[in-house]
């Protein structure tokens, strides 16, 4: 099972890490669902921006806090960018068509997955982004790990 730790020193490096993961996902059978964990402003959307630059280069990535989900048409795979910050339960998930997205041929990137532990798929990638050094506020520890139900 995949488990990798990285440090990035800037937003650009976080984006590049997202882009690198996207390139690997195109060439492997990694789960096409990425649950993103991390505090406000830690760089989750930057990671997604980098990821989208590979999968759907025409698209502009913004935080979907208001719309809850943004769809990006990709070259081969579509990309569905969720923000679960305002999601509190099954009813909310249903009314954004969450399960419909899981059955489509695309990649789901899900910010604030903390809010939907009950609805994560059996297999997914967990990406955790954290500030790791108070003296270097731009430094990030990023963990990418594969999670699968036993």
């Amino acid at each position: 099972m995949l488990r990798e730790l990285y440090q990035t020193k800037s937003t650009q490096e976080t984006e590049a890490l997202g882009a690198a993961l996207a390139a690997r996902m195109q060439e492997s059978d990694l789960p096409r669902y990425i649950a993103l964990y991390g505090d406000l402003g830690v760089g989750k959307t930057a990671f997604v921006r980098g990821f989208a630059s590979v999968i759907a280069p025409e698209s502009t990535v913004r935080s979907p806090t208001f719309a809850l989900v943004h769809e990006h048409r990709g070259k081969e795979l579509d990309l569905f960018h969720f923000d679960m910050y305002r999601i509190t339960g099954e009813d909310d998930l249903y009314s954004i068509g969450y399960d419909d997205y899981l059955t489509r041929n695309g990649i789901c990137l899900v910010e604030w997955s903390e809010n939907i532990p009950f609805a994560l798929p059996d297999a997914y990638l967990r990406v955790t982004i954290e500030k790791c050094d108070a003296d270097h506020p731009d430094l990030r520890a990023i963990c990418i790990e594969e999670v699968a139900a036993c």
Partner: peptide, 16 residues
């Protein structure tokens, strides 16, 4: 007609 899952939601929140 949307049939939503209030019971499932309650159970899952409890379990979590």
């Amino acid at each position: 007609v949307y049939l939503r899952l209030p019971q499932a939601e309650r159970e899952r929140l409890e379990r979590n």
